[in-house]
Nucleic acid binder design. Structure first.
Length: 485
DNA sequence: AACCCTTTGAAGTGT
DNA sequence: ACACTTCAAAGGGTT
């Protein structure tokens, strides 16, 4: 949101920019600033909300709700069939990760698929010496890219500040509401609850600690230009390919995901493999585990999330449903059935959340919470190189199978060639194909800065968003697009 | 234990 | 501008 941009004057981000200092200073200054400003922010936000006009937007775009979901949920019909099975119905549904080789090639040790990325058959019958030559060239390529492929660190990671949790810590009772002492271990309510306590429904669940902190996943040094040790290591390790090509893990350097941000950002220092998944990295010490438990600053809740938090108990009570996926489907339909005034309430609340969040954490970026995944946006050249090398290996491998071209390896085939290589997920598991990704691609963001956070135009114009269609149920219609998470 | 599912919106990046 | 991805909450289900 432009009005919420970090450079926005109203947010006071500039004057709170923190110079790069030692971690002790970084640890203290934002909190002091936050404490000082919190009350003012809250009061000003409340005043602002009273004077802010909620733009009209959502009402006209509201599609007809799908009462079937709720009615079937009440009757338990949604559970008659697994909600995720339907995407397997097709003969082959290309994964959004078309460039992900691990699960496209059932056996990478095989590497024998005769189908190149262009669908052509690879030449067969290469000799052992030819393969050795190819491997040698591959290793040379690896060495080349290990020294030449830069990955730029996110600017927000250049400063060393503590990993504060948005909900539980940033809005500690001592700060937000003196005298309020929550039960230990219980989740404190985020900003919206202090602003509008009546709209909040307390929850006793642990605040989003199921995932390890993502903030420590940025492997790059502040200098930005740090060599990647093994550009293809992820592929080779994950596929179980020849270990000769993969140097043993660097035990001397902890995994970036488990290294405290305060100590891992050594300019110019080498790091462990930046391409490996870091969502659940193994902990090597108590200190690392302690760092892992540190919450990160979470994203502020958007309007729908606020709505869900408020309405979920009602849906649970009404529909006797506990499965969150089903509840969310219902809530999604109810959300669309809301009037624009009702939605404006949540858009406005969400705007306050973002405003307060940006005030408390002017240097925070949503990118900070991204897991360290190698994506095409980050290193497209590297991905293309990987694609080429993989293709090369496939073509170089002795063809042992001339099976049907409809095998998943054809997913690597792209009409446009490597240029359309999709981002490579570094998750250790193949991403599941779901039906919801890509929604945002076709729908412009709802709120416009000039007219508050309520959508001004139909953000759900395109297909999938206007009419969410649950899958796999006989009453459900197939989704327009497939996606992953 | 860890991850998936499912929803919408915000925000990030790349083209 | 557009396309695409990730994350935010939630908790039962799955691996």
């Amino acid at each position: 949101m432009p009005q919420l941009g970090r450079d926005g004057d109203d947010l006071g981000a500039n004057d709170e920019l923190i110079a790069f200092k030692d971690e002790g200073e970084q640890e203290e200054k934002p909190n002091v600033s936050s404490e000082r400003d919190l009350d003012d922010v809250k009061s000003s936000l409340v005043n602002e909300s009273e004077t802010t006009n909620s733009s009209d937007s959502e009402a006209d775009r509201r599609p007809k709700p799908h009462p079937d979901v709720e009615s079937r949920a009440r009757h338990g019909q949604l559970f008659q069939e697994g909600p995720r099975k339907q995407h397997d119905t097709g003969l082959f549904q290309p994964s959004p990760y078309v460039g992900y080789p691990f699960f496209m090639i059932s056996d990478l040790g095989n590497l024998c698929s005769p189908y190149l990325t262009n669908g052509a058959l690879a030449p067969t019958g290469r000799t052992v010496s030819q393969h050795q030559t190819l491997i040698g060239i591959l290793m040379a390529t690896l060495l080349h890219y290990s020294n030449s492929v830069p990955v730029v660190q996110h600017p927000h990671m250049t400063h060393l500040r503590p990993l504060l949790s948005y909900s539980p810590e940033a809005f500690s009772p001592q700060r937000a509401s003196p005298g309020f002492s929550p039960e230990p271990g219980k989740q404190l309510l985020p900003a919206s609850c202090f602003l509008l306590p009546t709209s909040c429904i307390p929850t006793t669940s642990a605040p989003g600690m199921s995932r390890s902190p993502h903030t420590a996943c940025y492997p790059m040094s502040p200098g930005g230009m740090t060599p990647i040790p093994h550009p293809l290591g992820w592929l080779l390790v994950s596929s179980g390919f020849s270990p000769r090509l993969v140097p043993p893990p660097q035990t001397s350097v902890p995994h970036p995901a488990i290294v405290p941000a305060s100590v891992k950002q050594e300019p110019g220092a080498s790091h462990s493999h930046p391409l490996l998944p870091c969502r659940k990295p193994p902990s090597t010490s108590e200190h690392d585990q302690e760092e892992e438990r540190k919450p990160h600053i979470k994203k502020p809740l958007n309007a729908f999330m606020l709505y869900m938090r408020e309405e979920r108990p009602k849906v649970v009570a009404q529909c006797k449903v506990k499965e969150s996926a089903t509840i969310n489907q219902i809530l999604g339909q109810r959300w669309h059935s809301l009037s624009k005034e009702e939605q404006a309430k949540y858009y406005d609340l969400a705007r306050k959340e973002r405003l307060l969040h940006s005030k408390l954490y002017p240097n925070w970026s949503a990118r900070d919470n991204y897991v360290s995944r190698l994506t095409a946006e980050h290193t497209p050249s590297l991905l293309n190189t990987q694609h080429h090398i993989l293709t090369w290996l496939m073509s170089a491998s002795p063809a042992s199978s001339l099976d049907s071209p409809a095998t998943p390896t054809t997913a690597l085939a792209s009409p446009a060639g490597p240029a359309q290589l999709q981002p490579l997920s570094l998750t250790t598991k193949p991403p599941r194909i779901t039906h919801s990704v890509g929604r945002n691609a076709v729908t412009p963001g709802p709120p416009t800065p000039s007219s508050t956070d309520t959508p001004t135009s139909s953000p759900h114009t395109a297909s999938s968003r206007s009419s969410p269609q649950p899958l796999s149920h006989p009453f459900f219609h197939p989704p327009p697009t497939s996606s992953h998470r």
